[in-house]
Amino acid sequence: MTRRAAGLAGALLSLVIAAPAPAFAPPELFVRPQTWNTHEPAGDWIPLATAPALNYLGGYLIGYRLQASGQANEFQRVALSVTGVPDGSPTQPSASSPFCVGRAGVPGTIVEAGPELQFEGNGAYSVSVSVGADRDCQTAGASTAGAFSVDVHVAPVQVGEPQSFRVAPLAGNPFVGVQAPVPPGGSPDVRCALNGTVAADGSITGAVVVPDGSFDHPAVVERVFPRPGPWACVARGVVEGQDDNRDTVIFGTPWSAPLPVDVRSDFRRRTGTVSRPKASRVGFTFVAEWPELAGGGRGTVTLSRATGCKGARFKLRKVQTASGTFDAKRMRLELKRPKAGFYLGRFAFSGTRFLRSGDDPNPMLVLATRAKVGFSDPKAFPHCPGYRPRLQ
């Protein structure tokens, strides 16, 4: 190579080395629903320029389109800042602002601008992304601001007719109660309250609240209701996240409007007493398991004498029937004093709004002697081979 050629080559090389890197343009931004804790995509990239509304709780990944940098493998630095969240105070310990990272690849490819953002409630989320920052990310390059919103709503659904007590379990053990659909990326949370009212935060409060609020419950199965009555249920969507100390916290959507739910029960007697046990007409007083819900219901006692056995069952001869009506506390009726012997009483209830019509499952065992009439101790009452009084 001649000196002239060598000098020309050196001059060209110096021009190449001295050539400034191409200027970055404001980046094109995208968002994608993505599981916050497992980093799995849950959808496609969506341009942030469209201000999309996402029906997803699991997390959100911000992306941008790579540009030519003039560096090896088109290396470039990108800084992500979370500038707004629904509650006004970002809680994003994995994406502390600004979060700065190096990226490389083919220009035009959409790449991650930082780690996933976690759900912090329904509403607007705003971000800013800068490309071409310096090594310490203190000097911003070309920047673009963008926003997306999250709008997830969960409502409770009543399945079947819930009862706090059933004489006979349902065939196949189906779900009966209140549940909520699973929100995308999260879990449902259901609460119910007896005589429920809506609290200031939208949750439900009342005389009794089920389940407890220690963690989320996707459903309230009927056996969880401790008693019949007018209940109200609300639901929300929840997802786990981290606070600024990286401790696990639960973030939730707003609670739904309350759903009224009538929880019913099969009828049961609580107690019974006998008055005037030596009189020709014996008085009986009955108290229902839920006295305030039995008011207006009619109870009918059919008294039958046990005359022998047929297998494990008694042979019964009907003696008499009497009826009465429950007030807010009890029901009273009279039976003609029967002859000496052992008697079984069938107690039928007509039903009210919250107590179903049907027979009381607890046996009414009556012993009549020449002196008086009274209830018999189940242990002292005779039984047929294989018979066991059904006590609830």
Rank of each mutant, 00 (worst) to 15 (best):
V182W: 03
E240A: 12
A49G: 14
Y125V: 09
E161H: 06
K372R: 12
A79I: 01
K310D: 15
T91S: 07
P41C: 07
P228V: 00
R332N: 13
F267E: 05
T300D: 12
A322P: 02
F342R: 09
S126R: 13
A155D: 11
A68N: 03
S265G: 07
G186C: 03
P277W: 11
R135A: 12
P260S: 07
A312Q: 14
A23P: 08
L194M: 03
A180K: 07
P258I: 09
T139Y: 04
L54F: 00
P52N: 08
A312E: 12
V131L: 04
A257P: 01
V301W: 03
S130L: 09
V78W: 01
A79P: 04
F267H: 13
A380K: 15
H217F: 13
P230C: 05
G202K: 05
P230D: 12
V261N: 10
P47V: 02
V150R: 08
P174D: 06
E116Q: 14
A140K: 10
V82Y: 03
G70A: 05
W255S: 08
F349L: 09
G141F: 01
F175G: 08
R332C: 02
R298E: 14
V85N: 03
A312G: 10
P211F: 08
F175K: 09
S323T: 10
V82E: 06
D247Y: 08
P361S: 10
L194H: 06
P291C: 08
R135C: 04
R337Q: 06
P174H: 11
G213E: 10
A25H: 07
G10P: 00
P181Y: 04
V190A: 01
P52L: 06
P169T: 13
V239E: 06
L355T: 04
W45G: 05
A79V: 03
S130Q: 11
S376E: 15
V263G: 10
S69C: 06
A42I: 04
